[in-house]
Structures are given as C-alpha cells and as structure tokens.
C-alpha cells in the first residue's frame, strides 16, 4: 500500500497553528506558548515537539541535520530524519555548517551556528519550575508574577547538600531578563552558547504542548549566585582520543576490563570533520 502524505507530513492547518505559536514565541523570548501538538508517528516524549517545529519550517530548498546527544546516527536522529526525508524529499547532511535546519536532542553543536541557520531543540520538560510545583496553572502564575524564588531555592538547596550546584543538564536560564526557561537538557557546557547566539533557536515540547524561542542576539544568563557562580563542566587536561580536540564536550568511556577511562568528542560530526581535515592535510 502506498500512502501519499502531504508535503512535510502535516496538513496545512496544523502547520499554520504551529507557525502562529512560533511567531508569538519569538516575540516573547523564553515564554512557553501553548500549541495543539498533533499526534505523530513517533511517541510523545521522543522528540515530537522538535519534529513538529521542523515540519512547520521545512521547505524544498532546505538541508537538514538531526542529532541525538551529539550523534547523527543514533536511533532517534535516524528515525526523525527518515520521516522528514520520506515526506519532503529534502537532503540531509551531517555537517553542521551545511545544514539550514538543525534539529537536536540535548546538544548545541560545537561548530558555531550561522545567521541563516535555525536550531530546533527537542524538549521533554519545558517547565523549569515543575520540579517543585506540579500544577501547570500555578507555574503559569509564577511566570506571570516573575516569582522565581523557587528556582533559586532549588539551586541553593543543591549548594547546601553538595557544596555546588548539581544540575547535570537543563540548568535553568533567565531569558531577556524576564522569563526563567528550561534550556532543554543540554549540558551546562552548552548554556553559554545560548547567550547572544547568531542563529534563531526554537524549542518544542510535544508531550507538554509548548513552543518557545530564543531569538538571535538575546541575553540568556544561567541562574547562579554571586558567591557560587555558574560553572560549565570542565575537561581540564583531557582531550578527545580520536581527534585530540580540547575545549569541547567530551564523553567519558570506561573500559570494563582495565577500568581505564578515555574521552571522546560527544559531537560526532565535529570529531569526524576534524579527523577528515587531518587526514587531508
């Protein structure tokens, strides 16, 4: 059976609704705009928010890159790419610089983004205050009243318990000095990249039915305290075992037998590009 899908899977009404929400999200940086979130052929919580944003954006001229935890070839990325390619016929690329739309789960690529690119982030839990307030109506009120003491208190408790802020990923940020925003579970290492970025960054949460945005050149500050400033993960004295890169986000790989730890670039296309460059040179 050959089913003819619409271009970019969606009917035009669904795209219109997402487009309206996206334009409002850009006008109010960091504010979560509710949207209808259609049923998708992948399960909610597996990137449907990002996927819906990408489908509302994509055109025949686009070149798409999808990454999952830094990898172009993991299951989530491959399946999302397949769906988009099957319903649009556009080309895909692994190279960050060549893509016009980059959909990503949990990373901002190491290669700096350009002005004409759009980064779409998949978000599981868009509400930075959900950790201590389960009610959606209450968190909406807290955002409305600019009442973020709970967010700071959460970080303060971590300092009391562990002597440092212990957010592994999804460290909350303040956008345009107004809204506290969950940056999707990107590592702290990527938080500074949100600040004054060249590219438009769109965030979509399919299960939670929210779209939000960080326009280019927008002030994004990670929450911290004067005496406990925000710190990114450090990889001091370590480098990628394949390409030798320093100052990038590294994965720690443990050898089961020897117990030895080695490090490798988390962004696989960045690593590959460096290695290809080396072999050419």
């Amino acid at each position: 059976m050959n089913i003819e899908y619409n271009f970019a899977f969606f009917d035009e009404g669904s795209k219109r609704e997402i487009r309206r929400a996206t334009l409002k999200a850009i006008a109010i940086p960091g504010y979560q705009v509710p949207f209808a979130s259609r049923e998708m052929p992948i399960a909610r919580g597996w990137g449907t928010g990002g996927l819906q944003l990408t489908l509302s954006l994509v055109g025949k001229e686009d070149s798409l890159k999808v990454i999952d935890q830094g990898s172009d070839e993991s299951v989530n990325a491959v399946n999302i790419k397949k769906l988009i390619v099957l319903t649009t016929g556009i080309g895909v690329t692994d190279e960050t610089a060549e893509a016009t739309i980059i959909q990503s789960r949990h990373r901002i690529p190491e290669t700096p983004l350009q002005e004409d690119q759009i980064l779409v982030l998949q978000v599981p839990i868009p509400e930075p205050l959900r950790y201590y307030e389960p009610s959606e109506y209450e968190t909406k009120k807290l955002h409305a009243e600019h009442e973020y003491s709970g967010a700071w208190l959460m970080l303060f408790e971590q300092i009391v318990n562990y002597g440092a802020m212990s957010t592994g990923a999804d460290h909350p940020v303040m956008v345009h000095s107004r809204y506290v925003m969950a940056p999707s579970p990107i590592p702290r290492f990527d938080n500074p990249k949100l600040n004054q970025n060249n590219a438009l960054i769109l965030l979509g949460a399919g299960r939670e039915k929210k779209v939000y945005a960080v326009p280019p050149y927008t002030k994004v500050a990670s929450l911290d305290f004067e005496d406990y400033p925000f710190r990114v993960e450090t990889f001091q004295d370590k480098c990628c075992r394949l390409c030798g890169a320093k100052d990038v986000f590294l994965d720690e790989l443990l050898n089961d037998i020897t117990g030895e730890a080695s490090y490798q670039c988390n962004d696989t296309s960045y690593c590959l590009q460096r290695m290809n460059g080396k072999s050419k040179g």
Binding site: I26, A27, L57, G59, L200
Partner: peptide, 17 residues
C-alpha cells in the same frame, strides 16, 4: 504549500531579526 512555506520562513527571519 510551498509558496506559503517560503513566505513563512521570510516572516520568521524578519520577526526574529
């Protein structure tokens, strides 16, 4: 479908910059 998509991307670029 396609003309509206192209127009949307232009509007999006203009709204974000």
């Amino acid at each position: 479908v396609h003309d509206i998509q192209a127009a949307y991307r232009k509007t999006l670029a203009s709204m974000s910059r």
